[in-house]
Amino acid sequence: MNTNVANPMRPYLGQLTGVKDLATGIKLFQIELTEPEGQAAFAGYRPGQFAFVSAFGAGEAPFGITSTPARGPLLEFAVNALGHVTHTLHSLEAGDPVGVRGPLGNWFPMGEIKGRNVVVLGGGIGGAPLRPVIHTILDNRAGYGHLTVLWAARTPDLLVFTDEYDDWRAAPDTELHLTVDRGDENWTSNVGLITQLLEQVAPSLDDTVTITCGPPIMIHFVTLTLQKLGFTLDQMLTTLEARMHCGIGKCGRCNLGEKFICIDGPVFWQSEVAGFLEGFL
């Protein structure tokens, strides 16, 4: 844990440098940390870690970090406007001050899975914490095997990071498959659940790791479908969420049985999840 040692509940100060529309109701926030302590704390954050972003006056909420330090010093967060804090964040503009507390939690074992084939399965804004996985693989392309990305949303306007799909497709040994629950007049790609797409693509089991994030119901059915295809739970990584209030194992909010998503996760192997007393669904 690389958070503020003197007071882990105190955010680092930052400034919004860019706000971009990512999908309907979802914006991408780019943040520059302005204090040296904050810059030091975030110097080596990892794919899958999360942080609290505060809109001063409204409060703070936890988000998966959707950037990687290798691609620049700005921290990026994809935020869906659903509650008080997220609506307030959506009302902010470049130049506005924000707070960031973190980086928190564990991360995807990008070192441990080097050399292996990777299947990334993202549902809706669940794609946000997976983007650092994709970027890490693309930026170290020779270090990993085949990359298959299965990217889903309820409707085409809810797909995130659409402006990067061409880059992902153009990368060597990389494939991208899109699907939506319901298409529109311009939609020419797959229609259906990500589980159907998964069965259709049927990625090779051989030396492969899957990484899934999305709504709990999606994670659940993706896990079942992967098992049907022959994958074992120790090949499957996932990242879980909760409406946390501290991120450091104190507030109690994110427990699954005796585990805390914030400090024992948010990244888990499905073989660990299967052993939890309490389910995430």
Partner: peptide
């Protein structure tokens, strides 16, 4: 009991 919420 120690659960807490944080808000502004």
């Amino acid at each position: 009991c120690r659960c807490f919420d944080v808000t502004d």
